[in-house]
Design a protein around this nucleic acid. Structure first.
Length: 554
RNA sequence: GGCCCUGUGGUCAAGCGGUUAAGACGGAGCCCUCUCAAGGCUCAAUCCCGGGUUCGAUUCCCGGCAGGGUCACCA
């Protein structure tokens, strides 16, 4: 330690570096933001995005964990905007974050742009909290826990390169922390020269000291103390994430910080900052990231490469929002799925979510699973609810013809009742998401009915079936009568009237009733597969049915 | 490369020293059936490797290996 440092007037230095006159005594903030009055065990969590407006599946995953942790414990979930990096700012981003999460049923109790009487821990934009950070930075300087650094970006780059060349840990620490030991004269002359500076932490840590830390998800984690003199205040006077995190989560009285595991490596910094600031650190829960399979391996879902990371992707594809949430719940707590199976129809909010049960390893995003959950979820809807959901998708993303079709709600609901099956009974699960489900309905409308007529039988057979059935079709027939008529046609084209009979001696026939039905089905729906044909004909009506039968004649 | 995290079927994963190693998605097959879907039944498929500790390791310890993350005046 240098002689000068011992005698340096730190109070004076603090005032020279941070001359702001309107700063409060840091201790005042303890009164301004008093501990929250909450039931025992209640958790305060937060989502703290940067305002790029791009909110992705990983954010939703994390937000869901935050929201559940707060609301299953009677706590608070709030929104804070980390806008300390000007470059990341996008107009309307905050509203977009709120809207995106709201679409998936996740709501904040307080925070940026949230109407709430609970908003006493704000402001919730970090840029608006500059005075708080500066007050604490000033105090740290006065206490000798922080100092100004005048190194330029170029100097820092050079040091980093040298460190890399020598295979040393990169960063500003130990003997590389040049400005740590600047003399009083040097500092003041730099200041007088108007050199830009940042405020760095004067780290008290030693990397040879191992500390164990308890993470709510990962359990015991062995780390070393921090020895990096990290930047607290950037040259524009705005704090870095690390500094803002310590101060904000303390004064917003966050009890549980859920964040991605990419933060794990900076945990020692945060621990030291809390210590130096005299704060008790919150409980941390570091979540694994969502992964994607790629040539044999897996990698973190990437914003640039993977469209399925974007929440808009799910909206455009027409996934049922509750299904996306439920899929995420299965990743969050793997026993959720079993609970859901035992409690069919129960709201996911009734499930007892536990942070400790969250997965420790990065899960591969499984589209098959999401699809299954989504179609199951949609199958529980009534035809009316399903119509409302599909219609809202059509409003936003549908074609002109979709819009025209959906204008006739009564007709769509009739179709939906068929496509979905009887409510409360065993239901069909044909509709996976709006975009795909709506295409399933195309053959119910003349303008989108595009048959390919892929008959597996000769023209003569096909024509006979079509003509004979047209002669006897009566829309008033019930299902059995209808089918009896189909059976009657079979012998006329050399088919067996009973499938069982055909199976017994297939050589005796050219086909069976199934094949008669198939010919009719292709003519009427354009496809060899469809729900109950008799009902479909009923919905189309006699006129259209007969017209389609005639149109299919070779 | 240093440091940290993770490692059970193809995927998500239960499991906490003795289990026929759950369940779900996906796959295969059968039944049902006018086709498809749904449903029912059945099947195939897993403890990364090597050392310990122990009467006994998927489970505990050590060492490898593999995957991931991180090393900014970005968050």
């Amino acid at each position: 330690m240098k002689e000068e440092e011992n005698f340096m007037d730190l109070e004076k230095l603090a005032s020279a570096l941070i001359p702001d006159e309107d700063l409060l005594d840091p201790d005042k903030y303890e009164e301004i933001y008093p501990p929250r009055e909450m039931p025992k065990g209640a958790q305060v969590t937060r989502l703290a995005p940067s305002p790029t407006g791009f909110i992705h599946l990983g954010n939703l995953y994390s937000a869901l964990a935050d929201e559940r942790a707060a609301h299953t414990s009677g706590g608070i979930f709030y929104l804070r905007i980390e806008d300390t990096d000007d470059k990341r700012k996008v107009d309307g981003a905050v509203e977009s974050v709120i809207r995106s999460l709201d679409y998936f049923g996740i709501k904040f109790d307080e925070g940026a742009e949230i109407q709430s009487r609970l908003n006493i821990y704000g402001p919730y934009y970090q840029r608006q909290r500059a005075k708080i950070y500066r007050a604490f930075a000033k105090r740290l300087i006065a206490q000798g826990y922080a100092y100004p650094c005048f190194c330029t970006a170029e100097e820092l780059d050079r040091v980093r390169e040298a460190q890399n060349a020598e295979k040393l840990t990169t960063g500003y620490y130990g003997k590389f922390a040049k400005c740590r030991n600047l003399s009083e004269e040097e500092i003041y002359s730099n200041l007088k020269a108007g050199k830009p500076f940042v405020i760095r932490l004067k780290s008290q840590g030693d990397i040879s000291n191992k500390i164990t830390f308890r993470d709510a998800i990962k359990g015991e984690i062995a780390v070393t103390e921090n020895d990096q003199d990290v930047v607290l205040l950037k040259s524009d006077g705005i704090p870095t994430y690390h500094f803002a995190h310590a101060i904000d989560d303390h004064f917003m009285r966050t009890t549980l910080v859920i964040r991605g595991e990419e933060w794990l490596s900076s945990l020692p910094i945060h621990l030291e900052l809390h210590k130096v600031l005299g704060f008790k650190p919150p409980v941390y829960a570091h979540t694994c990231s969502l992964m994607k399979a790629e040539n044999g391996g897996k990698r973190k879902l990437s914003k640039r490469k993977d469209p399925e990371l974007s929440l808009d992707y799910y909206r455009k594809a027409g996934y049922y929002p509750a299904a996306v949430v439920k899929y995420l719940m299965t990743l969050l707590n793997s026993d959720f799925e079993e609970w859901q199976l035992k409690n069919p129809g129960a709201d996911y909010r009734e499930f007892k979510f536990k942070v400790e049960k969250m997965g420790k390893s990065g899960a591969l995003f499984d589209l098959d699973k999401l699809n299954d959950i989504s179609k199951t979820e949609i199958s529980t809807l009534s035809a009316e609810e399903c119509y409302a959901f599909l219609n809202s998708w059509v409003d936003e993303f549908g074609s002109a013809s979709d819009k025209q079709h959906f204008a006739d709600g009564a007709y769509i609901i009739k179709v939906l009742n068929l496509v979905m099956g009887t409510a409360g009974k065993k239901r069909r699960k044909d509709i996976e998401r709006a975009e795909q489900g709506i295409r399933l309905l195309d053959y119910f409308f003349d303008d989108t009915f595009k048959p390919r007529y892929d008959f597996r039988f000769g023209d003569e057979t096909v024509n006979t079936v079509l003509e004979e059935f047209a002669k006897v079709y009566d829309p008033d027939d019930d299902n059995q009568t209808w089918f009896a008529k189909v059976k009657e046609i079979a012998p006329k084209v050399g088919f067996a009237a009973e499938t069982g009979e055909y199976k017994k001696n297939p050589e005796a026939y050219k086909g069976s009733v199934s094949d008669v039905a198939e010919i009719l089905r292709i003519a009427v729906t354009g496809s060899a597969n469809s729900p109950d044909l008799c009902t479909i004909m009923g919905i189309l009506g006699k006129e259209r049915t007969i017209k389609r039968l005639a149109a299919a004649i070779r």
